[in-house]
Structures are given as C-alpha cells and as structure tokens.
Write a protein that binds this DNA or RNA. Structure first.
Lengths: 118, 118, 118, 118
DNA sequence: GTGGTCTAGACCACC
DNA sequence: GTGGTCTAGACCACC
C-alpha cells in the first residue's frame, strides 16, 4: 500500500479498509488483522493502527471484542446502507470536480470507457 | 468554500484553484488574487495562501512576477497537458476506489446518470 | 454480571465480591467458589480470578487456606469496620461528584426517593 | 487532582471535566485549557489530554475549533439533558451498590446528613 | 498473543 | 501558540 503525502496516513488506511469491507474482501463478522500485525504489514507504527481502528469503529464499521480482537460488524443492512452512502458521496464529489474543470458528463463517460478498455 | 477536516486546507485550496485554471475560471496569463485578498475571501490566514501559491507554482500552474504578483502560466499546451493528466489520474483513482467496493462500471454509470438527472 | 469497559474487570469483580461480603451474601468464614468455578460462572479466564482473590486478600477480606481454598475472614468486627469505611468513603465520593455538578443534597435526596419509588 | 490507580487516567480527567461542565465551572461555549497547558497542570503527557478531549468530544460535550482550541458546546438543552442523565445513572449505580451491602435507603440518608453535618 | 494506556518527543498545519 | 499526526517504546489487563 502506498501512502500519499497529502492526507494523514491513518485516514488512507481507514478508507482502504472501509472499501475492503464494502467490497467483501473483509466479510461481515470477519476478524481483522491484529494491531501489531497490520502495523508490521503496512510499515506503520502500531499506535497509528490503533487510530485507524478507532476511526473505523466510530464510522460504525467494526467492533472491538475486548479480549480477542477487532471484527467487521455483522449487520448487513447497516453495511449496505453505508456502502450506498459512500458510493453516492464519492460519485457526487468526483462529478463536481470533473465539472469544475469543464469536462462534460459525456466526455467523462468516454474517458471511463477508454480506461476500462471497452 | 467548505474545508474538510481530513486534509490540509492549503491542499484543498490549491486543488480548487488548479481545477479553476483547467476550467477556465482563471484564464491563461490571468493575474491571481493577492495573498492578502484571497486570504480574506476564504477566511484563512495569509500564510496559508503563501503555501497554496508555492504549491501551485511547484505544480507548474502559476508563475511569480517578482514585482507584481502571481499569474496563471500562459503556455496553453502545458495547461492542456496537465488538465488531461488530471482527468486521467483523478478518473483512474476514482474507478479504482469504486471497483474496490465491488461496484461495476455499468452500475457506476447508472449512478452518474441518476445524479445528473438524466 | 455486566462489565464496564472503562475499568479493569478484576477490580469490578473484586468490588462486587467485597459488597457481597458486606451484605452477607458471602457469610463470615464461608468458602468462596474455586477459581475455576468462578471463572466459568463469570465467563472470564481463571487467571483473572486469581488476580481478584489476590486483591481481596490484600484488602483483608478473605484468607487462603493453603490446602482447601479461599474463605471470607471470620472476624466480624473487622468486616463490620471495613463495611462502615466502605459506606463512608463511597458516599463521600458520590456526594463530592454530585456537588461538583451543582446538585444540592436536597435535590439529590428527592432523586433518590424518585428512583426508590417512594 | 489525584488519580486513582484503578481506572485509566484519561477517564478520570474526562469525568472531572464533564462534571465541571455540568456544574458550570466551565461555562457553555467557554474555551478549555490548551492541550499542552492542561497536561502541564495535571502532570500528564499532552497525548493523554488529546485522548481526554477526544473522549469528551465523543460524549458530545465539547467541540474543536480547529485553529483556536477546544470549547464547551453551547447547546444548553443538550448539556442539561446529559447532566440529568448523568445524575440519574450515577445515583442508580450508587444506590445499587449501597443496597448490595444491605444498607437501607433510610440509613443511607442518615449517613448523607451526617456527612453533610446537618 | 490480543487490545488498552501512557510517556517522550518530533514535526506539520494554521493563526 | 493552537491542535493533529506519527514514531518508539514501556507496561498493563485478559486469554
């Protein structure tokens, strides 16, 4: 995982895990990597991962099982709702940026097809 | 202008000006607002604007006229190239995030049309 | 038994047993549950119960019969004295907190009657 | 301020500030001490105070003015509601403990009057 | 091994 | 000076 230098690392990691939950790479109820393990994997300090997991917990995506670790919440409707909201907001924000640079939706969609190789 | 609290303000302002340049809201060769004036307009400290203009200069979008202020560069090809690159990268990054949450390009395009009210 | 997550579990269990001794639910000289048994009952690891019994012994409430287990001490005066001290200190601490939030003793007593349904 | 060793320091500080807000010692909208200043005053690490203020923010008691500091929220009804809830819960918990040691409400009230010197 | 708390200290962003 | 982020490292509670 590469980190950009224009946003706090803990947000970048949290956002990535959030997407992995929405995408099913982390399943409902699944145990997340331990704080120390994920810190090692990503090459960041464990305290940063503590911050990441606090952030995800405050977003309602994971819960702490005090003794055994951190888990994706099991409430499918909740996750689904948050995912829809994520898609909506991210898309609106993207469209807003694209329109600000004077690219039409049609041009944008051509660009998307071009990137997707269709 | 609204600032998110998960990214440095100077990046948010710089990105916005970058898009305004690509969109033509700031024309080629146009003089940018003075540091003081833009700070007042946006309600941020002049030092932050200094940082913004430094950033934009390092991106090759503006130049300093030592005596009279900051100007959008006049090289149309350069700006056009940077704009294409911005569109390409911003779109790739967005598509990458969307695919990570397991939304297909077709679903995404439906979402875009829905938002655009078409 | 519910555990709060803002205090170590072993303190919460120790405090509860301390009160049960003062209240007579554990009689003077009575044998306490085995470490294993209490751990099972409360759903915590036996090591935690070891810690609980150490704590209660250091408070002078129980003693270890090396061969046969843990017992509530039999000295009635001592237990009675500790109980009085507990009541005194717990009440002072509570009153101190209540007064800090600007609630008078009269208001507090009304609240107590309200809760007690009198 | 004295810290007990049976609860995390950051909770003890947060609870104390919570009570000072309810009691009016910190008025609605008032600026709280800076992180560094409060750390110095209490003899704890600034990072601990960061944690304290995060906790109070999550309780809805304070807000961050990103540039200038931390402030008690100004919503009087909200604070009043939280204060009532605090009184209710703390009192119920206290009564529960007292009854567990087999002290009647009448005895308790005598004790309260005795402590209050009435 | 798992998470939680705390310290010490560095550096950044914003005013 | 104000808060925010991150690292390094220690020690505790619980399993």
């Amino acid at each position: 995982m590469y980190f950009k230098n224009n946003r706090p690392v803990f947000y970048q990691i949290a956002d990535d895990i959030e997407r992995k939950i929405y995408g099913g790479e982390y399943a409902l109820g699944q145990k997340l990597p331990s704080i120390r393990e994920l810190g090692l994997t990503l090459g960041v300090n464990p305290n940063t991962i503590v911050h990441v997991y606090d952030e995800l917990e405050s977003r309602g995506l994971i819960r702490t099982e005090s003794t055994s670790g951190k888990y994706v919440v099991s409430d499918e409707k909740k996750i689904e709702g948050l995912k829809r909201k994520y898609l909506e907001e991210r898309t609106r924000e993207f469209l807003s940026d694209i329109k600000e640079i004077n690219i039409s939706v049609d041009e944008l969609i051509l660009k998307i097809y071009e990137i997707e190789g269709k």
